[in-house]
């Protein structure tokens, strides 16, 4: 076992190992740091910044910043939550997220974050960008209206599936997820069982013909806010 040390998150002493990020060490200790682009088992990416914490007084992404002895991390404070709320609101307005009919509603990490943060409506104007759908594949479809550019599909396809099906093209507002084919997803090697398909945190990459199978009331975030599973570990450990 690697050497351990302690650091502080919100006045609580946390144990960490060298090589762990702040987010990983926090998670192990049952402290939930909100995140979107981070997915356990994939290389940290640091693109969404939802896991932003104040580390020794400076804003840093907890998913990429290694934990270090004596660090003072501010996670659940009002000012940090305010930063995260703004980031999530910006994600909402820069895409076309219509939760009311989206099949990932109740099971969507972006929506889950909005509920956790108490976001009733974004304070920024909607951009209503023109985005397209790729329904060419028999079993999978991409709805870019809902893509938050977290890159989880890109990394999962590369690191887990060994396929390189997804990648980013364009810059700034023009940036989007592209598939490794002349035209559309049907021409790629993607399979419905790929980790890349399961990795999408929102309703952008979906398995066809599976929508709304889970009734309202039984969906992942219908009764408990996102992150509750991690926080329960801490409660369980305390007992």
């Amino acid at each position: 076992m690697s050497e351990t040390f302690t650091f502080v998150i919100d006045d609580k002493e946390i144990e960490g190992c060298f090589g762990q990020t702040i987010l990983e060490a926090a998670e192990e200790a049952g402290v939930y740091i909100p995140r979107l682009c981070h997915l356990k088992g994939l290389t940290p990416f640091g693109s969404c910044r939802v896991c932003t914490c104040m580390v020794n007084g400076r804003a840093m992404a907890a998913c990429t910043q290694p934990a270090a002895p004596g660090m003072i991390v501010e996670n659940a404070s009002e000012r940090v939550t305010e930063i995260r709320k703004s980031l999530v609101e910006m994600l909402f307005v820069e895409g076309n997220h219509f939760c009311m009919f989206c099949e990932r509603s109740g099971d969507c990490e972006l929506q889950g974050l909005a509920y956790r943060f108490g976001i009733a409506a974004p304070r920024y104007p909607y951009l209503f960008p023109e985005r397209d759908l790729d329904a060419s594949h028999d079993d999978i479809f991409i709805d870019r209206n809902r893509c938050v550019l977290c890159g989880r599909c890109v990394r999962a396809s590369r690191e887990k599936d060994g396929k390189h099906v997804f990648g980013f093209v364009g810059r700034g507002p023009a940036k989007r997820v592209q598939v490794n084919a002349e035209a559309a997803l049907a021409e790629t090697k993607v399979a419905v069982t790929d980790e890349a398909v399961a990795a999408c945190p929102v309703g952008a990459i979906l398995k066809k013909r599976t929508a709304y199978r889970v009734p309202v009331g039984e969906r992942r975030y219908d009764h408990e806010p996102i992150g509750s599973d991690i926080e329960k570990r801490r409660t369980a450990a305390a007992e």
Binding site: F101, E103, L133, A135, F141, K208, R209, A211, Y212
Partner: peptide, 9 residues
């Protein structure tokens, strides 16, 4: 343009 299973919702 929307997938057919979305229509009822």
């Amino acid at each position: 343009g929307r997938p057919y299973w979305e229509a009822p919702v």
